[in-house]
Amino acid sequence: MEKLIDINNVNFKYNDGNYILSDINLIINRGEFVSLLGSNGSGKSTLSKLCNAMLMPTHGSVTVDGLNTIDNKEKYNIRCKVGLVQQNPDNQIVAATVEEDVAFGPENLQLSPEEIRKRVDDSLKSVGMYKYKDSSIYKLSGGEKQKVAISGIVAMQPECIILDEPTSMLDPKSRKDVLDTIIKLNKEQKIAIILVTHYMDEAVLADKVVMMDKGRILIQGTPKEVFSNVELLKEHKFTLPEVTELTEILRNNRCDLPRGIYDEDEFILSLKSIVGGRECL
């Protein structure tokens, strides 16, 4: 796999404060879907801001597609490659109608009107919001606004989109809708995704899960690798996905289930395989 973002031995602090991030080593590959988990104040948002040159490392280096984020000349290019979507959709809307809002980014890239039109239409279609292109943004629901915000980034044709808790204000259906959109962009357009979240069921959708604790990376790996380390996660007071928690309780009651199950259907399959065989008491 080809590296897109390379975070190498990074430490970070604001001015004279304490270190917020220490010894961070993380690689985001092209087209990879990475989820970033950790308690409030563990450094997730700070880390994501280092990825598009909103913040610079105090020590160490961050490169995006080979460009170092401390290089002032490249800042603009880096931000075109890595876009950021925030938690509250109301804080990131700049125009009155949907298509104007999405066009804001491409307009700033000084593209031709035809190209802007094309990008706006394509990106609205890719998030399923094309039919709302003339609507007033303020009449949309939270989930719809969030999809418009994502569309605004997609129109910049980035290599990577960082989403900082994009679903925490949304109802269950809108949440699913936004997640489906993120997955689609990742699978179909091969855009790398960094998803900052508190929801375990969102985190396990990723190729790679990164757990942050007190400014350090506690563990990183596939969802299966990470959620098999139940003791470590518990010791650091992480909440397990419900299915993993359920599996653990059953295992402790001598049920012969494998570790690291995080998917409902996988759980049911594993349970089926033992329930007839009476392998536990």
Binding site: N40, S42, S168, M169, H198, M200, K237, F238, T239
Partner: peptide, 9 residues
């Protein structure tokens, strides 16, 4: 909304 699972609990 936006609290981590432990803070929430």
């Amino acid at each position: 909304a936006g609290l981590d699972p432990l803070s929430r609990k």
